[in-house]
């Protein structure tokens, strides 16, 4: 067990002394996942809004597709994009495989269904009267849309945190699309997988600690939000 406690102490040292290699990896992870979630939010919110507010053929089917896509394994998403982006694939000319952009695309696709499904639930939870009130008070459709966003902001934050939680820790898509290149596409999960397989536990544990702490922080936020979310109004 001496090995393990040594590794743990070493891991804390890496984190607390601001070890360059370790913090570069952490930085890449947050950069890629933040970009992915930020680019997924606008189209996901719009999609969720349309699904919540308009009845059209195929709507129910779309909703269940998004809901099913939430649980597709990250490797499968990675594999699909890999085939598209590889040299001889349809998007091969983009020369994007093994770049951060490819990782962002993979994580975009992973978070999108979560954002849509959870934002849809948030939009459906808000009273029909909210939209009608905004419109009849003189808001144009765009203003009314932003009014709704504000009314369901806690539900949307929950969706955002859940989406971020999924992509920051996923290893499959990042590994296949990024290629685990040091200082470029090596992020927390792929670094943990690599370092551990090489027997270098200290860095693996250090990065693991970051993910666990993040999980606690995200959960605390979700918990706080779910309390704000409970309706105060009984109509």
């Amino acid at each position: 067990m001496g090995n393990l406690s040594d590794a743990l102490i070493e891991a804390l040292k890496l984190l607390l002394t601001g070890d360059d290699a370790t913090w570069t990896i952490i930085g890449i992870s947050f950069r890629v996942s933040t970009l992915a979630i930020l680019s997924a939010i606008p189209p996901a919110l719009l999609t969720a809004f349309l699904l919540a507010h308009f009845r059209f053929p195929g709507r129910k089917l779309l909703i269940s597709i998004f809901s099913a896509l939430m649980s597709v394994p990250a490797v499968v998403v990675g594999l699909t994009l890999f085939v598209l982006l590889s040299r001889h694939g349809p998007l091969g000319d983009w020369r994007m495989l093994f770049t951060q952009t490819a990782m962002v695309m993979g994580q975009f696709l992973l978070s999108f269904p979560i954002l849509v499904s959870m934002a849809l639930a948030a939009f459906q939870s808000v009273d029909q009267r909210a939209w009608e009130t905004a419109r009849t008070l003189g808001a144009d459709p765009m203003q009314a849309f932003f009014t709704l966003l504000h009314e369901v902001r806690f539900g949307l934050m929950t969706a955002l945190l859940a989406g971020f939680g999924r992509i920051i820790a996923e290893v499959g898509a990042s590994m296949m699309l990024g290629g685990n290149i040091l200082n470029y596409t090596r992020n927390i999960p792929t670094a943990i997988a690599l370092e551990t397989s090489k027997g270098n536990f200290a860095q693996g544990i250090a990065l693991g600690i970051v993910l666990v702490l993040l999980a606690f922080v995200l959960n605390a936020f979700l918990h706080a939000l779910s309390h704000r979310n409970t309706p105060q109004e009984a109509v």
Partner: peptide, 27 residues
């Protein structure tokens, strides 16, 4: 030209003042 008032009025999240200011902002 018309405005409809629900039987159970829907007030937006926030203070009464915010609800009034909202009305001014969209008008």
């Amino acid at each position: 030209d018309f405005m409809y008032l629900h039987q159970q009025p829907y007030l937006f999240d926030g203070s009464v003042e915010r609800n009034l200011r909202y009305t001014l902002r969209v008008n």
